[in-house]
Nucleic acid binder design. Structure first.
Lengths: 340, 340
DNA sequence: CTGAAAGCGCTAACAG
DNA sequence: CTGTTAGCGCTTTCAG
């Protein structure tokens, strides 16, 4: 079996308490310290984190709930989280909910049993539903801090980090307006979702500021953020002959570009397209995609830092941070040049 | 504070042992059971997994070491792992090594302290280096099983799952040969890496079987698997005017397609390109990419299952599994039609 | 500075 | 079937 603190104590000829002190960097006579260190090295002793946390009450593990592990969107967020946690000596227990309702609640309970020191929820969608809401409320206290990264909930009693979706919608539309476009279509993602609403508001404001009329037919809702979601509504949008399109994800933007090209439209000459997210493949597409860049890695990093600080008690207050976005202009947008 | 087993026992008017029995599904008189269950519900009691593992020696957590969390390649593997672990009631502690040497060793030690029940290493590259190698040997025993998913090491004393890279190289070349190509270039990834060697051997065998000559100049090494790696050597390859190219990743294939188009070559009419991996964007590219599909999700699932079975003692032996690959023909390959 | 002792929350014999 | 009694490995008073 692996050596325990008793083994080390015996070998070094001291008590368990002294070994514990050495391990935890508490002052000990030099001679003793050396003997303990030697014993530790000889035995290859490693403290049992399980036992440590049983007494200390801290596990140095936080739970992370993400809708998916396989995604160009969540990947950077998770990297930001892990990198930050690592810097603070935390590890993460990751659970993918597979976008499935109910899993969030199940996993939260499970992580609670594991006595994680905190919970980080990435883009939870069911925060407003009773069970999850209740769970968050009953755990959001001292003993089990929760931080939401880019989630639905903007309740004042839960810490979180958000991205400025309103700004994103505005910037996307503004960019196209500045290029001289007038009939600017919008392909929305999930109907009713908070981020979608905000982006749409930003888009509307930009249109309004420019004195451009808005037509309901120029706004379609895909029902999701993947290319296949876009495919089902793209024709309805293109039938309206827009000059340009704002899509609420890079995947949706791709579906627009793809279908437009099939219909004989050249991008950007006949149609400009703006995406959203700036995931890895946005710059690989041809033409490369103009898009609203979300600071995903930073989103994860800030959320993780917030959680750690709450756990340590350094910043116990509930805080909410909004991160700005920026537009990255690439080849998929250009001044209007309607089809002959 | 959160209620403990003692609180429940007191409230139900029984001993801690009885509560424990109820929680663990051991037979208990019906009346007692009901009282305990009631107390648990009223108190909102959840067993402390930390304490449980201290006695049982099992944490129901496995460590997963991955080079990256943000990747179209590792994503599916991780999903496969998580899904399988979930089915066996395990959780995973994920550590991203950021492709950095040394991190693997650091994290392994850390996970060991956390007393994870096992370790799953995804595509470790430094297995042959002394520290990691030593770590694996000292832990690969009963108490700390290790399974490697698609790693460098093929040592007989460590369980692992691999993908048939030789077959992949063969299939890619064979596909092009069947289309009538003769000057088939190869863009390799990391020089000296096991998978690269195997794929190259497969490619060579296919060429040989077809009686085609091989030229050294038609084989270049990018030094990595990302598009930017390919960019530095793609011109040298295209200067040789190949009919077709086998690239060792979809990213590399993309760099070939991209550069070829810039040089005025039409794909697939003037140049056929085969990728490797079949990551998500392979089918989004235009032309869509013919590629060797790796069963990534399955790779993760099989590795996870192997680890769980080793932990439970159901399959304590060291086993190694090789998964087949298959070629997915898309639009980037077609019969040869050299440039006029 | 250091050892003895108590206890974190739970499980596992061992008697009843 | 159930309560009592020991620990699991470590930290933490509290004396010495």
């Amino acid at each position: 079996m692996m050596p325990t603190i008793s083994d080390v104590a015996k070998r070094a000829g001291v008590s368990k308490a002294t070994v514990s002190r050495v391990v935890n960097g508490i002052s000990v006579r030099d001679a003793s310290r050396r003997r303990v260190l030697d014993a530790i090295a000889e035995l290859g002793y490693r403290p049992n984190a399980q036992a440590q946390s049983l007494t200390s009450g801290r596990t140095w593990v936080v739970g992370v709930l993400t809708p998916s592990l396989d995604s160009t969107f969540y990947g950077p967020i998770l990297e930001g989280i892990q990198e930050t946690l690592m810097a603070y000596d935390y590890n993460m227990m990751v659970c993918s909910t597979y976008h499935r309702r109910g899993n969030e609640y199940t996993f939260s309970k499970l992580l609670w049993e594991k006595r994680v020191d905190g919970l980080l929820m990435v883009t939870p969608r069911e925060l407003t539903e009773p069970p999850v809401r209740a769970l968050l409320l009953e755990t959001a206290g001292e003993r089990f801090p929760v931080v939401v990264a880019d989630g639905e909930l903007a309740a004042a009693d839960i810490s979180g980090v958000w991205v400025d979706n309103y700004l994103g919608g505005y910037l996307a539309a503004q960019h196209l307006i500045e290029l001289g476009h007038r009939r600017i279509g919008l392909m929305a993602g999930i109907p009713g979702a908070r981020e979608a609403q905000q982006r749409q508001l930003g888009y509307s404001k930009a249109m309004q500021d420019a004195g451009l009329p808005m037509e309901a037919a120029l706004q379609v809702t895909a029902g999701g953020y993947l290319p296949e979601h876009g495919r089902s509504v793209v024709d309805a949008l293109l039938d309206q002959e827009p000059d340009a399109v704002v899509a609420m994800s890079d995947g949706l933007a791709w579906s627009v570009m793809q279908r437009a090209q099939e219909r004989g439209l050249h991008i950007p000459d006949h149609l400009s397209v703006v995406g959203y997210d700036d995931v890895a493949f946005a710059q690989l597409l041809r033409p490369s995609l103009t898009t609203v860049q979300q600071p995903l890695r930073q989103l994860g990093a800030v959320a993780a830092r917030k959680l750690v600080k709450t756990i340590s008690g350094e910043e116990p207050q509930v805080t909410q941070t909004t991160l700005p976005v920026q537009l990255v202009a690439r080849q998929s947008t250009a001044p209007s040049r309607r089809r002959p």
